[in-house]
Design a protein around this nucleic acid. Structure first.
Length: 298
DNA sequence: ATCCAGGATGTAT
DNA sequence: ATACATCATGGA
């Protein structure tokens, strides 16, 4: 990697419960990070092994897990940012202690121990989960990279070019046709209109964060392309509502197979019942372990 | 070919 | 409030 980057490392022993960086960043909860060796732009893959990258507010941040440390390098002193984005202060032991004792839950925690809920920046999280509707995880990543390439500000670091996530203004100025050309499909107008809402101040992050869950869940659905499920994802993966339990097709199957009594016929009541069944205030953590576990079995 | 993917929206009832 | 058709796209 080029010189000029600030670097640091955090002993895993300082993180309550440690961390599994791969499970954290490849479990389909965040589309703001990518594997450095899978970049589709720029040249070279030297020294990229095991590194994950993101760009936040004009700064490149790279992170890599080694035997005993979480290493990082960035265009700024990014340790506080890393703590925030990866929720490194969360006490995983305490969270697991609150979780349901069922085998399928405990198997999920065993298999992916160290997975942390992320705290993605609001706008990228909002847009990425609008794009997630009826879409495979791998393609959601591709869509976000395409948005960065086409509408994001370029960041030059050494020989490489990185892209920030587009600003609300930049995406609001895109046309539906342009976004369809990036293979967003029917989500194209949702993305444009939601970006416009944020850009024009009709509804912004600060409006939304004035209230707590579940009121914020209700407010988020005012955005175009945001229903109850996507709203719960933004609550959990950006707004630190660890009790939010997004119900996607995998969770509906899990409820059907393992927690049939939680099925209440509609989203809100089923989600509420499932939250209590999984352990309450940290149910979103357990949900994400479950999601990753179920999606990877076989 | 048919079905499915971290669903949401518009319309009719 | 609830039921249903419709919405792009690519992989299995």
């Amino acid at each position: 990697m080029a010189n000029g980057l600030e670097r640091g490392s955090i002993p895993l022993s300082e993180l309550p419960g440690g961390i599994d960086l791969q499970a954290t960043l490849e479990s389909g909860q965040s589309y703001c990070w990518w594997r450095a060796d899978e970049r589709t732009y720029g040249a070279g893959t030297d020294g990229d092994d095991g590194w994950y990258e993101t760009v936040v507010d004009g700064d490149l941040l790279r992170a890599r897990q080694t035997d005993g440390e979480l290493r990082w390098e960035a265009t700024t002193d990014a340790e506080p940012l890393l703590y925030e984005l990866l929720r490194l202060d969360d006490d995983l032991e305490a969270i697991r202690a609150s979780a349901a004792a069922d085998d399928v839950v405990q198997d999920a925690y065993d298999n992916y121990w160290g997975l942390r809920i992320v705290a993605d920046p609001f706008f990228p999280c909002l847009i990425s989960f609008i794009c997630s509707a009826q879409m495979h995880v791998s393609r959601i990543f591709e869509m976000q990279m395409a948005l960065r390439r086409e509408y994001g500000e370029e960041i030059e670091v050494g020989e490489r070019t990185y892209y920030d996530f587009p600003t609300p203004d930049a995406l609001a100025a895109a046309t539906e046709e342009e976004l369809r050309d990036l293979n967003l499909g029917y989500r194209a107008p949702y993305v444009q209109r939601t970006a416009e809402m944020v850009s024009e101040g009709e509804l912004t992050e600060s409006d939304v964060t004035e209230t707590a869950y579940p009121a914020v869940r209700e407010e988020l659905t005012e955005f175009v392309g945001v229903g109850q499920k996507v709203s719960d994802c933004v609550c959990l993966f950006s707004l630190s509502c660890l009790e939010a339990v997004p119900l996607d097709t995998w969770m509906h199957t899990a409820i059907e197979e393992h927690f049939p009594k939680c099925e209440r016929g509609n989203y809100t009541d089923t989600s509420d019942a499932f939250r209590e069944r999984l352990g309450g205030e940290f149910a979103g953590y357990t949900q994400t372990y479950l999601f990753h576990h179920l999606r990877n079995e076989d």
